[in-house]
Computed example of a mutant assay.
Amino acid sequence: MSVNTRAILPMLWLLASEHADPTSGIVDQSIKSISFRLRLTEKEIQSAIDEAEKCGFIMMLSTRNETVTEPLPNRTPRDREETEERPSRI
């Protein structure tokens, strides 16, 4: 992976932490917006995103000109079950 991609990838993860659900890993900003926020060219951002996806670090969920990523499956969803039974009404 290129040095440029290795530098941009953590910045993309930081942008993902700004999402309404910070654990979702979603970056729902356009390439233009990301470029402005990171003070890099759109070409540099797009190249880094393409390379990071190719290497398996991110997954594109949208084909529009927006970057929407999903985190790698390193977190397991918690099963939230009720521990107490509710009495049934008769």
Rank of each mutant, 00 (worst) to 15 (best):
M1L: 07
V3G: 09
R6I: 01
I8R: 01
L9K: 05
M11P: 00
W13R: 11
L14S: 10
A16I: 07
A16N: 07
A16C: 04
H19S: 11
H19Y: 06
A20R: 02
T23K: 15
S24M: 05
G25I: 03
G25C: 10
I26D: 02
I26N: 10
V27C: 01
D28Q: 13
S30Y: 06
I31A: 13
I31E: 03
I34M: 10
S35F: 11
S35R: 12
F36P: 00
R37E: 07
R37W: 01
L38C: 00
L38H: 02
R39S: 10
L40S: 02
I45Y: 05
I45L: 09
Q46D: 11
Q46H: 07
S47H: 15
S47I: 11
I49M: 07
E51Y: 08
A52G: 02
C55K: 14
C55N: 05
G56C: 06
F57C: 04
I58A: 06
I58K: 13
L61V: 10
T63Y: 09
R64H: 13
N65C: 05
N65A: 04
T67G: 00
T67R: 00
V68T: 05
T69D: 09
T69S: 14
E70G: 01
P71L: 08
L72P: 08
P73E: 08
R75N: 09
R78C: 06
D79T: 03
R80G: 08
E82L: 03
E82H: 04
T83W: 03
E84H: 13
R86Y: 08
S88M: 07
S88E: 14
R89P: 01
I90L: 10
